[in-house]
Design a protein around this nucleic acid. Structure first.
Lengths: 358, 358
DNA sequence: ATTAGCACTCACAACAAAAGAGTGCTAAAA
DNA sequence: TTTTAGCACTCTTTTGTTGTGAGTGCTAAT
């Protein structure tokens, strides 16, 4: 064959694609006859068997046992995703669904992401995830203190990315609205735009000095801000549609399922994985391509959400390795496009109400 | 027998208790011989069989099939829980664990509840839930507006129960810090302490009239507050330790498990169930006692968290019907006690930092 | 009222046999 | 040289058979 030096024969590709498609659909190994029937190839099953044997040797296919059909290997899936995948066109109904449901949830970024993860799960029939990634070092853009009672106020912090965090603070002795305002303005002067590690003792003392009689307040507030920054650093992750996993036979193995659920619950591993990713495009991690050992039989597809050049979140899907990548990719693209639009719209058109952040 | 008119013979109780205990431990049906061995009863297995037959007739026991042992029925479990249950004493280690981990999470109520649900799951080995119940009608105690940019501010609302909600608002034309302050004070004057349903059009127009040139702002703000109140009404629920369910054979039936997971995800049913409960003590719903059909093979135990006479949350545990009630009750009591203390402490001792209420 | 004894039931495990799916290989055909 | 038909072979899955054991219900004796 002429084009054998570089890559695969056209026919091999066709066969590989057929196998992967069938495997994605059915989950089981697929044999030569099946392909012959559902594919217009002008050759016999024997030829296909030969090709399959070669594909196996090349590492694209695997054989569960001697008399079973072939199953795509990780490499095979990767090749499929990278070069064989046909674009899936979303139905108008799906597009409408994304639009409507997401618009309805118009609000803070958290909510949008969760709604999107939910939708992703619904549309693809896999498990959806929404992530606010760990950020290397957040800083606070603005503080506010809300007076409630003489010994009770709320500290509000707005991060540079727009997230809002609040903490109730109860004080030992009474504090006036005026000195509270002073505290806030002090915080705004000294504690904005600096990461947690730069909050030093001298700074603290300086602030206390300027605070006059209310100096003791500063310590409490700063301590709270510390905690708050640490929380922000940690990232968030929410999962939706776990129940959908159960419909796939690859998770009928209780042990595996339990491990995967554990990982989904711990959140840490996946959160790290997503947070460390630089690529702003759709990321596909098939099986052991991800560091998380527990996901060796699963695939994780996610797309970061970028706003003003910052990654403010990510939405994704977790499912069996043989996931319907075409559909998943289309769905995530659709969702992320929609979210980006919403974030954009709020910015440029100044539509009216709320926006993304917190 | 003398005491047969009212309730069960002492021996029947003993046998019932033995059966339930064994069933909780092992999960399977338990037979007459087993009881004879693990219980000091001075009678033969035949006698026990007779008693068991009677207990079955009374509805406390069930027989999966003719030659199996007996399994406690829902009624049997209920009786066990109500009158046979022995108090479980937490180990000092468990108590310490509760104390340490919960203290560490000292913070807003949301976090405390989630941490508690997590702990509950860890300690009991069932699935933990944390709930902020639907509230009949919330009202806002205080508003604040935080100026960020000329066309961008944050609206902060503090509810009567201390929960803080924030919304970003982007405006069409520019707004000054002064008129923002005016807006906030207007909101504080007219829109506090009234439940959502009373915010009417006339009220809105009245406010707009008083706002003068900045009147157009009011509409946006009020619309946002509307949305915000609706969100508050809906309640929240988070689940932890789903993976623990898998270790119990009653959930090896994939169909059932899937349904249960679905219910846990939908949240609505359980949220309603808990929200509607008046009783501030520990609630135990065994199988079909709860309205949620899907939970017929499960049990839900939860305890509301009360603060200042208001139910501000609930923590609970979901697991198989044959759950270790003694341990679950002790754990939830311990946790809720601890949480209440924390909420109290913040109030009375004025410890220092933060407090409960989102 | 209790108990020993025994026949009976029923789920479950172990094993064997049969069925099916799919391959690899060989030898002929293109 | 590539393709194909044919067939033997392998290995899983299904089905059926048979034992085994746990546990009961009943009867007759204590």
């Amino acid at each position: 064959m002429s084009s054998e030096n570089r890559g695969l024969t056209e026919r091999k590709k066709q066969i590989l694609k057929a196998i992967v498609d069938a495997h994605i659909e059915g989950g089981g190994p697929v044999g030569s006859k099946y392909i012959l029937q559902n594919q217009q190839l002008k050759c016999s099953s024997a030829t296909i068997r030969n090709e399959m044997a070669e594909l196996e040797e090349m590492g694209y296919l695997e054989q569960p046992h001697a008399s079973a059909g072939r199953v795509p290997s990780e490499l095979g899936l990767r090749f499929y995703v990278d070069t064989l995948l046909e674009h899936y066109a979303m139905t108008t109904h799906e597009i409408a669904q994304i639009n409507n449901l997401l618009r309805a949830k118009m609000g803070e970024l958290d909510q949008i992401l969760k709604a999107a993860s939910n939708l992703a799960s619904n549309l693809t029939n896999y498990t959806g995830i929404a992530i606010k990634p760990k950020v290397s070092s957040v800083s606070i853009a603005k503080y506010e203190a809300i007076y409630l009672e003489p010994t009770h106020y709320i500290l509000v912090a707005v991060t540079s990315s727009g997230t809002v965090k609040t903490k109730h603070i109860r004080t030992e002795s009474e504090i006036t609205e005026e000195s509270l305002a002073k505290l806030a303005s002090l915080l705004n002067t000294y504690m904005t735009r600096i990461p947690a590690e730069q909050i030093t003792l001298p700074l603290l003392m300086d602030m206390e000095a300027r605070m006059g009689e209310g100096a003791w307040q500063v310590g409490v507030a700063v301590k709270t801000i510390y905690a708050l920054l640490r929380e922000l650093d940690e990232g968030e992750m929410s999962v939706s549609g776990i129940n959908r996993l159960l419909q796939y036979p690859e998770y009928s193995d209780v042990g595996h399922l339990q491990e995967l659920l554990g990982t989904l619950e711990k959140k840490e591993d996946i959160l790290n994985l997503v947070s460390q990713t630089q690529n702003d495009d759709i990321n596909i991690m098939i099986g052991s391509e991800s560091q998380v050992k527990v996901m060796n039989n699963s695939a994780l597809v996610f797309k970061p959400i970028v706003k003003d050049g910052r990654t403010v979140g990510a939405i994704g899907v977790i499912g069996p390795r043989r996931m319907d990548y075409a559909k998943v990719l289309a769905t995530l693209e659709g969702l992320s496009g929609n979210i980006s639009n919403m974030l954009q719209e709020n910015k440029e058109l100044n539509g009216g109400t709320s926006d993304g952040g917190n």
